[in-house]
Amino acid sequence: MTKHVTHPSVHANDQGDLVDAAEAFRKRFGDVPSKIIKTSEIRHTWGLSFLANYLNLPLYRDLIKTTDLSRPQIVTLFSLSECDGLQASEICLISGQPKNSISRAVIDLRKRGLITQKNHSVDKRAKHLHLTEAGSALLEQILNRFLARQSAMRAILSEDELEVFDRLLAKLLFAMPSWVDDGVEVERLDTTPRS
């Protein structure tokens, strides 16, 4: 069932920009997406998916061609750049990628010399992953592409709006434990060694 949704008030000086942006959006993507944004009961779910698809999919498609890396491989490199020494299961959790995809990515990245794997000093079953110099250098090029794409996406927002956006995004992300267990396999992030 579709119902009309009223949007929060927009400052007068932003009204013209918003109208212009909405018209440019309608011309690029057509009337249906514009209607969904304005009236659909699932506009937030749809809007986040739509934004993420246009933000990431063309970038990943191009990176797969230019770097000969798969998306799970790129995700693995990025995860290790943010937190060195992760295990494959932890990369699955923080990326939402399936275990088999990350396992294959780890094997391929090791073969290419982009990551190394070391046993934990206490728990020999735990395999900790680390970027190599070559992996770090390649990831830097990849991250520059993501930063450029992110900057283009955020360019419409003022500094004040970016602060609000960051706060709201963090709030949505941190609230995930309250709704994410809806049939999706979720593993507990636990880096403590087993005895």
Rank of each mutant, 00 (worst) to 15 (best):
K118E: 14
H128P: 05
I156F: 02
I142R: 01
P33V: 00
K35C: 08
S40G: 08
I115Y: 01
S34W: 08
S178G: 07
K38V: 06
R167L: 13
L169V: 07
A170M: 11
S70G: 04
K65C: 07
T76Q: 08
H120Y: 06
I64Y: 05
G135I: 01
A175Y: 14
V10W: 05
N13F: 09
L114T: 02
A24C: 06
V184M: 11
A148P: 11
L57E: 08
L139S: 02
T45H: 13
E90N: 03
S158D: 01
F146V: 06
K118N: 12
G16A: 10
F146Y: 03
S81W: 05
F165Y: 13
H130L: 08
S136T: 11
I91Q: 00
I142E: 10
N100G: 03
L80H: 01
H4F: 11
L77K: 03
A134N: 15
V5Q: 13
A12H: 09
L51C: 10
L51P: 00
E159I: 04
E185Q: 15
I142D: 06
W179N: 09
R43I: 00
L169Y: 12
L69S: 05
P177I: 01
S121Y: 12
V106G: 00
Q87F: 04
W179R: 10
A134R: 15
L48P: 00
G96S: 01
Q141I: 13
A175K: 07
S9R: 10
R26Y: 09
P177W: 02
H120F: 05
V186Y: 09
P193W: 00
G113W: 10
T192N: 08
R110I: 08
S121V: 07
S195W: 09
L77D: 04
L147W: 12
M176T: 14
S121D: 14
L59G: 05
P33Q: 04
P33K: 03
T132Y: 08
R28W: 01
T132I: 05
W46S: 02
L63E: 03
Q97C: 12
V122F: 06
S81F: 04
A170N: 11
D108P: 02
K118F: 03
R26E: 11
I91C: 00
S158C: 02
Y54T: 00
T66W: 06
A52S: 04
L143E: 14
S103R: 09
Q97A: 13
V10M: 09
R188S: 07
N56Y: 02
K27P: 03
G183H: 03
N53I: 01
